[in-house]
Every structure is written in structure tokens, then in C-alpha cells.
Write a protein that binds this DNA or RNA. Sequence first.
DNA 1: TGTATATTTTTTGTCGACACAAAATGAGCG
DNA 2: CGCTCATTTTGTGTCGACAAAAAATATACA
Lengths: 234, 234
Amino acid sequence: MVATAPRKPTERKRGSGVQFIYGVLRDEILNLTLAPGSPIDEVQLSERLSMSRTPIREALVRLAGEGLVTTLPNRSTVVANIDFLNLHTFFDAITLMYRVTTRLAAEFHTEADLVAIRARQAEFAQAVAAQDALGMIGTNREFHAAIAAAGRNPYYEGLFLRLLDEGRRLLRLYYSSFDDQLPRRYVTEHDEIIAAIEAGDIQTCDRLAKEHADQITTQIRTMIAVDRRQDITL
Amino acid sequence: MVATAPRKPTERKRGSGVQFIYGVLRDEILNLTLAPGSPIDEVQLSERLSMSRTPIREALVRLAGEGLVTTLPNRSTVVANIDFLNLHTFFDAITLMYRVTTRLAAEFHTEADLVAIRARQAEFAQAVAAQDALGMIGTNREFHAAIAAAGRNPYYEGLFLRLLDEGRRLLRLYYSSFDDQLPRRYVTEHDEIIAAIEAGDIQTCDRLAKEHADQITTQIRTMIAVDRRQDITL
DNA sequence: TGTATATTTTTTGTCGACACAAAATGAGCG
DNA sequence: CGCTCATTTTGTGTCGACAAAAAATATACA
């Protein structure tokens, strides 16, 4: 009789609907729960989240603005595909953002920023120690997001966050099968970056950020190269 | 009797509503027709554009994603303010994007790109010759947008376009009172940039882009400094 | 049996209306 | 006369429904 009410009808407050839906969809997209290229049915979603289509559409518009979904005119919106052919543009951009945000953090950070950055680094180290690949992906993002926030440039910060999320999706795609060897090296690199920021050493920050970015990009590239054989998802 | 229909009721096709509203609002915001900080009433807008509130809200969500409007929760959305205190972050970011996109254009441009870039430059030169300050602002944006498109990096391109629009709003703010001395120098600089792109000379592209950006930022800074006396819009 | 056309189905784009939250206004009290 | 609290007003957040567009299906014809 009441089998169709697994979720309490009125639980969320007014005004938080779009934000809630946005968060759910965003997580599911970045976690690959929603596969790239899969269509998003508004009616189905409205039933699942027990909300009207209006807030769902607004959340989709927002996601489209961030490039996480693609809206076909008069046709279904689909989860954005991962463009393997143009990954170099992604690596190029994220490397530059790593460098710029870390440099600015060295220049403009406050003590409160350092506290936040160290806290994120502690969470990251914990995730690495626990061999938690997914947690590592998430905490790594938060670590660099905290550095970007310390840089105090909202334009760089916005692009960087978007790129970090895109990277989260990429890593998620490969870490599911490679969760054995978690590179503890990253923890050390993070520590060095923190020290350079604290010292206000812009040049060192730039170098470390570039090396760190190169590490990650080569790792992703290696992963892609490894299972290119069985991964013909064109 | 029919005095309430200054606009033909059903003129736009289905599916173009949001795009239409988005374009109108965006133009009015960038042209300063809608003053920064002024509230946007959804009902009033729906009457003016003779559309329902639903597509208007979706357009506003999109504009909020681009930072052109700010949405206060449960309260009216307002046109984004110009943050004079943090203009340096804007200059920093747009300078970097000038450099990066021009470098990439030198590397990846095709013949078709050059044709488009030269066409935009012709329009820009024409606007300068005609002493058309507003036209110059618009054509200059299109010129650099064409270069960014030739660079083939959608991440840089997206941020750059956003920054160029923000700059369009800034220039608009000052050119209304300074439309006497239009710097013909920019035309020459553009020509040099085109030559460097065509030659594939990345280093020269980088240098020219940086100089060009410095020109523009110092010009804007000068303008701001000039009427700081009477402009206490805190 | 294959292809072009008509029809149904599915899903989006838009609409008008209601409900709620915050600001603006007014009333009551010290 | 000023301050606090109730009330009205304004405008957003959400909803259910209708209409249109594209895809899917069925039908007719060669």
C-alpha cells in the first residue's frame, strides 16, 4: 500500500531543492554512477528524488554550464562524455592551474589558510595510509582546492575546481581496477608544497606544482595506455 | 483593446525561449543597461519579454553560473557587482589567458582559423577608424575569441570568453566618457599578433600577448584612477 | 519484402497557480 | 517618542498540467 514512499515526501526545506538535486547528480556523475553518455530522464529523476521537474531542470542547466552534462535541443540531456581524444587540453589546463594557484597561495596565504591546507593534507595522508583509493581522490581534490582558495583569485579557482572534478571522474574510471599500489609519494610532495607556500617561495611552488601535475598526468596516461586493449569505448 | 500586446505573443519557436532570454539579459548586463547591483524581478521580466517565469529562471541560473548575476536565497537575484577592490585578480587572469590562448593558436591554428581571425581584425580596424568605441569593444572581443578558438583548448577558451565579457563591461563603464582618443596602436598590435600566429612563433606570440594585455590593463587602470575622485560607489 | 508515409508514443519546453519566506508595514506597549 | 511584535505585502520556490517536437511504431504501397 505505502510501498511507493521510500523517501519522506516533505523532508527538505524550501529553497534547498535545486541545490540538493545538483549535489546528488553531480556526485553520481563524478562517481560514474551515471555513466558518461547515458541519458537523463527528467520524469524518472523527479520520481526518484520525489521532486517536481522544475528544480530538476534548473539543476541540469547548472550542470550543463559546468560541462558535466550536455543538453541536446528538444531531446534528452546526457551525461557528458569523456573526450579521450582531447585529453591533452585537459592536462595542459590543469597543469597550468596547479602552478598558478600554488604560486598565488605562496603570495597571498594567511595563517588560517595554512591551517585548512594542513587539515586537508592530514585527511589525504590518512586516506593513503588506509589504502582508500576513492577517499584519496576526494581528499586530494580538497587539498588543492584549499590551496586555490588561499590564492584568492576566483577566476583561477573556478576553473581549477572544474578541472579537479573532471580529473576525479577520470581517476575514478581507472582506480577501480588499480587500487593496489597507492603512491605514497604524493604525500611527500604535498608536504613539500605546504612548506614552500608557508615560506612564500613562489619559484619553488611553481616547480613543485609542475612536478606534481606531471606525476598525475603521466599516471593517468599510463593507466589509459595500459587498458587501451580492452577499452574500445569509441 | 489590444494595447497590451506590443510584442507578438507567439513569435519565437519552441526551445529557443531560454536562449533568447539569456541573450537579452546578457547583452543588457554587459551593456550596463542593467546596472550592477540592481535587482532582477522575475515577474516584471516575464511581462517585458512575454514569457513564463520558468524559462526566465533557467536563464538566470545559467547567468549565475557565469558570474553575471548573483542569486540571493529566497530573495531577488541581482546583477553582479563589479568588484573594484579585487580587479587585480581579473587583470592577472585575463593576462594569462591572453598569453596562453595566443600561444596555442600559434601552435594549432588552421588556415580557416586565420581567415576568421583576419576577418575579425578587419572589423576591429573598421570600428577604430570610425571612432566607434562601443563597436571597438565588441570587435576586439571577437578578435581574441577567434584566436582562442584556434587554440583548441575549451577550458582556456571558456574562461577567456568569460573574462573578455567581464572586461567588456568594465570598458563600457569608462569608454562612455572617454570616446575621444581611440588608440590606433591596438590595430598594429593585432596585426603583429596575427603575423606571429601565422609564423607559428610561440615565443613572440607570448610576448605580444603579454604586451597587449599590459596595454589594456594599464589603460583601464588609468581610467579608474582618473575618476576615482567622483566615483565613490562603495 | 523493402521503402516511404502516417500514426502513436515518449519526452521535453512552457505555462499558470499555489505555498512559503523574507521584507515592509502597521499596531501595541514601555 | 522609540522599540518590539503582529500583519500585510512582495516575490521567489515548487508544483501539476498542457502543448509541441522528435523518436518509435505501425501502415500502405510498389
